Amino acid sequence: MTKRFWAIFKARNLEFFRDRSSLGWNLFFPLLLVVGFAFIFSGDGRAEYKIGLLGDKPAQSRFFELEHVQYVDYQDSELAQRKLQQHSLDLLVEPASQTYWVNKSSPKGYFAEQLLIGDLPDYHREVLDGREIRYLDWVLPGILGMNMMFSCLFGVGYVIVRYRKASVLKRLKATPLHAAEFLTAQVLSRLFIVLVISGGVFVACDWMFDFYMLGSYLDLLLVAALGATAMIALGLLMASRSHSEELTGGLLNLVSWPMMMLSGVWFSLEGAPAAMQTVAQFLPLTQLVDAARAIMTDGATLVDVQQQIWIMLAMILLFLGLGAWLFRWEGDGR
């Protein structure tokens, strides 16, 4: 059993690394994205002011009805102040105590403060300081997560359909190889490839741009492995029976585009409609990106992101279980 598993695992890795076009795309596409964002979004990448609120808005106050300002509600004062220190907020206001906090190193915070004291001069001022999280720092987990998503989904889905269409799976069925061994080898092979590629891109980009990293690299690696496994399992599920590359491609796009748009890759979902945030929680990329950002920018531990970890583990079991149950060597109609 071990020899059969290792033979499939080794063959799949050699097939990938010998395909120079696929290897080059997986290496340089995310790198080019990060470099591009570094120059395009040299500032914080936002076009509007973002003000945190601790408590309810007071009535009859122009400051809390300004246009081009996003107001975000917070229940946790410590979390909100950390967001302000990291320049994720421009100003933090607590109407009940008539207190506001400003980051003295934030230019946008200065102008937001002028707007506040122009309308509410009696509010008490508190000053915080902290290293700015650039938009590049914030978007990095999303870019790497998105690249992992495409590699996981299409790297497994298309390969299995191609094997089935070329009768490779039909020939493998005649060998002592079991379906569980084949699927496990495919999952672990793709996981190995994704982690090696993403790890190399992360190290290269970190060397060039000195990313904001407060948490443990080991925790980040574990979260990345769980998220990648969940998306590999989803790709396996999408390709469990089909002969058609076109159909499989459509199914993979059907699950990848919502993840790319709703998983917080490019923008935060804070302040988004509740229904959108609920849908996003059912996407594996959302859990991966949220956990990775918490580790990198907030210094979170595995205990702090255990909710995302448990959700990703549940997704892995669900997708792998369904994929193994639905898997056919020859597919439907053969």
Score class of each variant (00 low, 15 high):
Ala174Ser: 09
Ala275Thr: 13
Met315Tyr: 02
Pro121His: 10
Arg328Thr: 14
Tyr217Thr: 15
Ile117Ser: 08
Gly55Cys: 11
Leu144Gly: 08
Gly43Val: 11
Phe17Gly: 11
Gly45Glu: 08
Leu183Asn: 01
Gln307Val: 13
Tyr110Ala: 14
Glu15Thr: 14
His68Ile: 11
Phe150Trp: 13
Leu116His: 06
Phe319Met: 10
Val201Cys: 02
Ile232Asn: 00
Asp219Cys: 12
Pro107Gln: 07
Ala11Thr: 13
Val203Thr: 11
Val69Asn: 07
Phe282Leu: 13
Cys205Arg: 00
Pro176Phe: 04
Leu288Val: 08
Gly264Arg: 00
Lys57Cys: 12
Ser240His: 03
Lys104Val: 14
Ile197Ala: 00
Gly142Cys: 10
Leu214Glu: 12
Met1Lys: 05
Glu113Leu: 06
Ile143Arg: 02
Arg334Ala: 12
Gly250Asn: 10
Gln75Cys: 12
Val127Ile: 15
Trp257Ser: 09
Tyr158Pro: 03
Gly130Lys: 08
Gly249Thr: 01
Gly130Glu: 10
Leu89Tyr: 06
Leu302Ser: 11
Leu269Glu: 02
Cys152Gln: 01
Ala112Ser: 12
Val201Phe: 01
Met276Phe: 10
Asp90Cys: 13
Arg82Ile: 12
Thr175Ser: 09
Gln281Ile: 12
Phe9Asn: 03
Leu247Ala: 05
Ile295Trp: 06
Pro107Cys: 04
Thr2Trp: 13
Met1Arg: 08
Asn26Arg: 09
Phe16Ala: 07
His124Trp: 06
Cys205Asn: 05
Trp138Leu: 10
Val93Gly: 06
Ser151Pro: 03
Met315Thr: 04
Val161Ile: 14
Gly215Ser: 05
Arg164Cys: 01
Ala233His: 00
Val102Tyr: 08
Ser97Pro: 15
Phe202Asn: 01
Leu89Arg: 05
Arg62Lys: 12
His87Tyr: 09
Gln98Glu: 15
Leu214Gln: 15
Ser244Thr: 04
Tyr123Ser: 09
Pro95Ser: 10
Ala185Val: 04
Leu32Ile: 15
Leu317Gln: 04
Pro107Leu: 03
Leu66His: 05
Ala174Met: 07
Gly130Thr: 10
Trp207Asp: 12
Gly43Gln: 13
Leu177Ala: 15
Val159Gln: 06
Gln98Val: 03
Ala272Met: 13
Trp101Asn: 01
Gly118Tyr: 08
Gln308Asn: 10
Ala59Gly: 12
Arg162Pro: 09
Ile160Trp: 01
Arg241Lys: 07
